Amino acid sequence: MTDSSKPDDDAEDEALPELCDLCGAVVSGSTEWYALVPDSSSIHAVDARFDGKRLVVGCVKEHLAELIKQYKRRPFVDAELWAGKIARALQKYEGRISEEDLAAETGLAPNQIEAAATWQNIEVLRWREQFGKDGPDPSP
């Protein structure tokens, strides 16, 4: 008898299908279109070279063009990018990092770290104003 609550080993090895970032359609090897777009909210888990860049996929060339157009309209906010770099460093060091080490780890100058903290604080206040202290209501 097998435990139906455990995923099948073969299923774990199968890659999940790629979805179009615009319409959600499944894309196949013959219909995928990719682009790297600027996005200050995109922070790579470990490699800072990929910070501020997002890989998007379209199921057809027209959907990719629309995605590129949408990201061109989105403002690139340096302080948002810097806040993400700081968050990654804080997570890596479990919140225990000196100001000097934080600057070295992120490559940010003290004024950039201050601007990132200010941006983050403003975003928290904006979030609370919009959704309340506990965040959005998950119920429909």
Rank of each mutant, 00 (worst) to 15 (best):
M1P: 02
P7V: 10
D9Q: 13
D13V: 00
E14H: 05
C20Y: 02
C20Q: 00
V26C: 04
G29L: 13
S30F: 07
T31Y: 02
Y34E: 06
A35R: 03
L36M: 09
V37Y: 02
V37E: 06
S40W: 10
S40N: 09
S41M: 08
S41P: 00
S42W: 08
S42P: 06
S42F: 12
H44G: 01
A45H: 05
V46K: 11
V46G: 06
D51Y: 06
K53C: 12
V56R: 01
G58R: 01
C59I: 01
A65Q: 08
A65Y: 04
L67G: 01
Q70Y: 00
Y71L: 07
K72E: 06
R74F: 11
R74L: 15
F76Q: 05
V77S: 04
D78A: 15
E80Y: 08
I86E: 02
A87V: 04
R88E: 04
A89R: 01
A89K: 00
L90Y: 00
L90K: 01
K92R: 15
R96K: 11
A103C: 15
A103Q: 15
T106M: 01
L108N: 05
A109Y: 09
P110S: 14
E114V: 10
T118Y: 04
W119V: 01
W119C: 02
E123Q: 15
L125W: 06
R126F: 00
R126N: 05
R128P: 08
R128S: 10
E129K: 12
G132F: 15
D134H: 11
D134W: 07
G135E: 06
D137S: 13
D137Y: 12
D137V: 12
P138L: 15
P140K: 14
P140F: 13
